[in-house]
Design a protein around this nucleic acid. Structure first.
Lengths: 347, 347
DNA sequence: CTGAAAGCGCTTACAG
DNA sequence: CTGAAAGCGCTTACAG
C-alpha cells in the first residue's frame, strides 16, 4: 500500500512556518501575505503534496463528493441515455472540483440495498446525492431528505411545502404532449393513441395527463382502447402494440404517441412484425430524441429534451446548495422541442 | 448540512462498554464474546449508527473506494459499451463492499487533468484505480504505478519485469484475427483487407499483428493498399472505406476485417453511400459484438468478447490485491468467439 | 499576520 | 476479554 510521507507538518517545517499557516494557504484564506503564500506554495508544489482528504473532512471540510444513484430495476443498463446522464453529472461536478461516487440500485425496496445507500450518506462519504429513475414518491429518498441530507432528484415533484434540501428537475410533459398532439392533428390525424410510461414515475403520470389535456385542446376524442400501458422500456412498446393489434384489429388509431423513443422503437418493431409500415400504415412519435432515433428506420419524429443540460444544471444547483445552504434555488424544468423526421405522415 | 450526532463514544456509553470494544465489534475482531457483540450490535442498529469513514480511514482503515478512469478523447462517450464497462465495475466493486469514484479523462497530456487524477490517488480518496482506454504506454499511469499505487488496466501490456501493483486485462487479438481470417477464407475469400484501430493502444497493435499472422497462416497475401488506418471509432471506418473506394476503384478486397464493430458500422455506411451492398458486394466482420450489432442491417458478423466478465474479473482482482498485497495474481486474457450473422457471404 | 493547542471520530498497540 | 491512551493529518477558534 502506498503511503505518502508528506504531510502538512513537513511542509510547514520546510517552508519555515506553522501548520496553521500551511492550512491557511491551502484553503486560500485572505490573511496570508503574498510572500508567505508564495513560499509555502513553492514547497507544496516542489514536494507534490496533496492534503489528506480524510483528515480534512474529519476536521470539518467538505468531502467534495456527490453520490449518483441510478435506479434501474431492469438488469444492466443497456441504454446510451443512461451513459449520457452519468457523464453529464460527472463532468459538471468535476468542473466544480467535485467527485462522483456512482451507485446502482436494482430494487429500492430491498433491505440490504436501502442499508447500503443510507450508509453512503451517513458515513460522510458524500456531501449530497442525485437520484435518477426514482418513483415519484420514494420512501428511501424521502427519509434521507427528512434526515437532512442534500439531494437532487430527476423527475420528482417538489412536495408542498417545498423542502430546502431537495432540488428537483422535471420535464414539461404537458407542453410536450401538446406539441405532439398538435403536430399530429395538423397532419390530419384524429385517431390518436398513446403508450404510457411507468405510472409510478412522475413523467409517466404527467405524460398521460398531458395526452388527455392535449386531446381535449385539439377537440379529439380519446378511445380508451387506444390508451396502452407501458413502462418506458422498448419491450413494453412492443407488447402494447401487439395487444392493440390483437384486440382492436378493425378499429385502430392512425397515430400513436409513445412515452419515449425506446417505447416507440418497440412499437415500430411490433408493427413491422405484423406487416404494418411506419409511417404508411401508422404514424409514431416518441419522446427524448434518443441518440439512436435519428438513425432509426424510419428516422423517428420525437420531442427532444436536453438531458445533459438538465443534469448539468441539477448538479450545479446541488453543489451550490451544499456550499451556500441558505441561497434560494429554483427547481429546473426542461422543455421539449419537436424534431420532425420520418415516422409520421399526413393523412 | 446534515451531521450525525451518533458516534462510537455514544454507542459505547449506551452499550456499557468502551470505544475500543465498539470498534472491535464493528471490525469483526475475534476476541469479543458473543453476548458483548450482540449487546453492542443492538445499540448500533437501534440508533442507525454508521461509523464515520473519514475517521476510519485516518485511523488506518481502507477507503473501500476504487477510482474508475475513463479515457475518452472524443467528447461525450456516446457508446453503450462504455456504459456496460462502468456498470460492470460498479456492480462488481459493490459486491465486495467497495464504492466507485468515476472520473473522465479527455486528454492524458493536459497538466490540469494529470494533476486532478494524481490528486485523487494522493489525497487518499481511493485504494486503487482502474484505467480504461489508455494508450499502451501511458506516463500518467506508469508514474502512479511507480509511486506505489494499485492499478488495474484494460488493454495494456504487462511490462517485464512485471509490477506487483499493476494488474492487466488484455484481449487475445491474435486468436480473434485468426478466427476472422479463417472464417473468411473458408467462405472463399482470398482478397481480405483490414481497418486498423488506434495504433497507440495495445489492441490496435495486436490486431494488426494478428491480421498479418492470420493472413500468412491462411496462405493469403496482404495487399498494403487494403491495410487501412483507423481509430476504433465509427467515423474512422467510414473514412477508411471512402479512401479505399477512391484510390483503389478497380482493385478492391472482397472482405474487410474491422478493428471493432463501430468501425464496421462506419465502413458499411460508407459502402452503402457508394451504392455497394453488404454482404453482396463486400463482406465485413467486426470485433466486440457491440450491443447494436445484432440489430444492425445487415446484422453484423463479429468476434464476441465478454466485457462484463473481463471487467468484473479485473475489479475483483484489484480488490483482492488491495486486501492481500502479497498474494500472487495472474493477468486476465479475454478470448473471442465468432458470432456468424449476415455481413459476410460465400464467394 | 501567525503559532500553540484543541478537536474532528475513529483504530490499535499496550497493559492488565 | 477489555479499557485508557496515543495517534491518524488536518482545521480553526483563540490569543497575541
Amino acid at each position: 500500500m502506498k503511503k505518502s510521507e508528506m504531510k502538512s507538518e513537513e511542509i510547514a517545517r520546510l517552508a519555515g512556518v506553522s501548520r496553521s499557516t500551511v492550512s491557511r494557504v491551502i484553503n486560500n484564506y485572505a490573511n496570508v501575505p503574498p510572500e508567505t503564500r508564495a513560499k509555502v506554495m513553492k514547497v507544496i508544489q516542489d514536494h507534490n503534496y496533496y492534503p489528506n482528504v480524510s483528515a480534512q473532512v474529519l476536521a470539518g471540510k467538505r468531502a467534495r463528493t456527490l453520490g449518483l444513484f441510478l435506479i434501474e430495476p431492469g438488469g444492466v443498463s443497456s441504454d446510451i441515455l443512461t451513459n449520457m446522464l452519468i457523464v453529464s453529472v460527472i463532468e459538471n461536478a468535476s468542473s466544480h472540483g467535485y467527485y462522483v461516487l456512482t451507485h446502482i440500485i436494482r430494487d429500492t425496496a430491498d433491505t440490504d440495498t436501502i442499508r447500503s445507500v443510507r450508509e453512503i450518506f451517513f458515513q460522510g462519504r458524500i456531501d449530497g446525492g442525485i437520484f435518477i429513475g426514482a418513483a415519484d414518491r420514494e420512501p428511501l429518498i424521502d427519509d434521507l431528505i427528512r434526515e437532512g441530507f442534500m439531494v437532487g432528484v430527476m423527475d420528482q415533484e417538489q412536495p408542498i411545502p417545498c423542502q430546502p434540501n431537495r432540488i428537483a428537475a422535471i420535464f414539461n410533459n404537458t407542453s410536450g404532449m401538446k406539441q405532439a398532439a398538435a403536430y399530429l392533428a395538423e397532419l390530419g390525424h384524429t385517431r390518436i393513441g398513446v403508450i404510457n410510461g411507468d405510472m409510478n414515475r412522475l413523467s409517466g403520470r404527467t405524460k398521460y395527463e398531458g395526452y388527455m389535456q392535449a386531446m381535449e385542446t385539439e377537440g379529439l376524442k380519446v378511445n380508451p382502447a387506444w390508451v396502452l400501458g407501458g413502462s418506458f422500456h422498448e419491450n413494453s412498446g412492443c407488447n402494447a402494440v401487439k395487444k392493440l393489434l390483437h384486440c382492436e384489429k378493425h378499429d385502430l388509431p392512425t397515430a400513436i404517441i409513445a412515452a419515449n423513443d425506446s417505447v416507440a422503437f418497440g412499437a415500430i418493431r411490433a408493427l413491422k412484425e405484423h406487416g404494418l409500415r411506419v409511417p404508411d400504415d401508422m404514424s409514431i412519435i416518441g419522446f427524448d430524441d434518443h441518440p439512436l432515433s435519428a438513425r432509426h428506420h424510419p428516422a423517428l419524429t420525437t420531442l427532444q429534451v436536453d438531458f445533459s443540460e438538465m443534469l448539468g444544471q441539477l448538479t450545479s444547483k446541488l453543489i451550490a446548495r451544499i456550499e451556500h445552504p441558505d441561497e434560494a434555488i429554483h427547481d429546473i424544468t426542461a422543455e421539449y422541442t419537436l424534431i420532425v423526421r420520418e415516422s409520421c405522415r399526413r393523412i
